[in-house]
Every structure is written in C-alpha cells, then in structure tokens.
C-alpha cells in the first residue's frame, strides 16, 4: 500500500468518513497508485453489492406486529 494511504484510510474514504485532508490524500493515492486504485475499485464493488442484499420478511410478520399495536393501543 501507498505510504500516504493506509487500508484504514481507504475504508474511511469508501464510507465518506474522511476529513478534507484525508480525502485529498486518498484520492491522490487512488489516482497515482495502480495497486491502491485496484483495491479501492474492488472494495467499492463489494460494498455496493452488500448494500443490495435484501431478504424480505414474511408479510404475516408485519400483520402480527400491527395487530400487537392495535391490541395494545391506549394501554400504555
């Protein structure tokens, strides 16, 4: 890895949690170091796919929760 850009910096940058100075340094490393650019590209793809994972609960669960809300309305 680039000396001015650690993996922690890259992870923070990926999650938009870098300071302005860190942002400039990481972007510079991505632009000028092929290894950093390749790692960043892979991590960006992976996190993009992670966020698309979606498991839908059964509709009956929602109904059951709403029933609980109805039954307990005014009792708290």
């Amino acid at each position: 890895m680039n000396e001015s850009c650690t993996l922690n910096d890259l992870v923070l940058y990926l999650h938009n949690e870098t300071t302005i100075i860190q942002t400039v340094e990481v972007q510079n490393a991505i632009d000028n170091d092929e290894e950093v650019a390749e790692i960043f590209d892979d991590l960006k793809k992976i996190t993009g796919y992670i966020q698309e994972i979606s498991i839908r609960p059964a509709g009956a669960l929602r109904e059951s929760i709403l029933n609980y809300a109805r039954l307990t309305a005014g009792t708290k």
Binding site: S54, R56, P57
Partner: peptide
C-alpha cells in the same frame, strides 16, 4: 415497517 423491514430483517 414497510419502509425499513428489508434492511432490518436482512
């Protein structure tokens, strides 16, 4: 619930 159920359940 409808808005957030997938993220919470996942």
């Amino acid at each position: 619930i409808i808005r957030h159920e997938r993220k919470i359940y996942t």
